[in-house]
Computed example of a mutant assay.
Amino acid sequence: MNAQANGQLSWSRRRALALLLQGGMALGAGAVNAAPSATTVAPKFNPDGSEAHWPGNSIICHVDKRSETFMALLDIHQNLMRSGMLHRIAVLPPASYHMTVFNGISYPARHLDFPTDIPPDADEAFCNAWWLAKLKVFDLGCELPFRLRVLPVEQQTNLYNIQFEPVDAAENRKIRKLRDRLAQALNYRLADHDSFRFHITLNYFYSTMTSEEQRRFFKLHQVLAGELIRRAPVVELQNPEYVYFDGMYEFRPQLLLQNQRPA
């Protein structure tokens, strides 16, 4: 990275921190007054903030580490680590940053949702391998990259993540059709399948915030979302990855979904 780029990154960090110290005054009134989502304590982390055992599988796109989106997310990570909220939040490592294309099986929640063609008492290894065999012959069936834009700051009310939407109607149809085909191939369709909001998760809450802490953290979150919009309003994602995980810190790729047939 050249000196000019380093200077721009440093300026971005200083600006974000300055805005936070100003109490978010640079945000529009509508953004500051928007209601944040509830900061529910996540079962994916222990009461001391350590990562809980939460195994499963999923289909995701990791954020390209060479992209401006990833560089901006690195600055967001640093600001979260300096936020004074580490007694409440578990900040995810940048290597984990991804966008979920299709939610897989969360084994601790298997009593709520489970594929219809797998025995309910099947172990994790069997389920993971069952999906792997199916996905090896699954045709991605669409052009890459996926292109999504960051939602406006006033809509960034989920304090766990940054939320996105496809850049246009054609891109939305492409991604939604892929999700529909995956649900059919894997015999697995969650209740929020049609309303699923694309996002990149930044942190989880392992301890309940006071109302004042939530107010301050909401302001910080919106400042950081605004910086991402300024620097990298559109994210481009390549082949989805079928991944295994034991918790929220690492998602281990097993297979890249590919176009099996020529266009």
Rank of each mutant, 00 (worst) to 15 (best):
M1T: 11
N2E: 12
Q8R: 14
L9A: 12
R14K: 13
A16P: 05
A18M: 15
L19D: 12
L20K: 06
G23Y: 10
G23H: 11
L27H: 06
G28I: 04
G28Q: 10
A31G: 02
A31E: 10
A35V: 08
P36F: 02
A42M: 13
P43E: 13
F45H: 06
N57R: 08
S67K: 09
F70A: 07
L74E: 13
L74Y: 02
Q78N: 10
M81T: 04
S83D: 03
G84E: 05
L86A: 08
H87D: 14
V91L: 02
P93T: 02
P94H: 07
A95Y: 07
A95E: 15
F102R: 09
N103V: 05
S106W: 10
Y107S: 03
P108E: 11
A109Q: 15
R110S: 14
H111V: 14
H111M: 15
L112H: 14
L112S: 15
D113R: 12
F114A: 11
D117C: 05
D123N: 15
N128P: 03
A129D: 15
A129V: 06
W130H: 15
W130R: 11
W131Y: 13
D139T: 08
L140S: 08
L140Q: 10
C142W: 03
R149W: 02
P152K: 04
N158T: 00
L159V: 00
L159Q: 04
Q163M: 07
F164R: 00
V167G: 03
V167H: 02
V167C: 10
D168N: 15
A170R: 13
R173S: 09
R176Q: 13
L178D: 04
R179W: 07
D180T: 08
A183P: 00
R189D: 09
L190H: 12
S195E: 11
L202Y: 05
L202T: 06
Y204I: 05
Y204M: 06
Y204V: 03
S207A: 14
F217C: 00
F218G: 03
K219W: 04
R231H: 09
N239C: 15
P240S: 11
E241S: 05
V243C: 08
G247A: 12
M248F: 14
L256F: 11
L257V: 03
Q260S: 10
P262G: 04
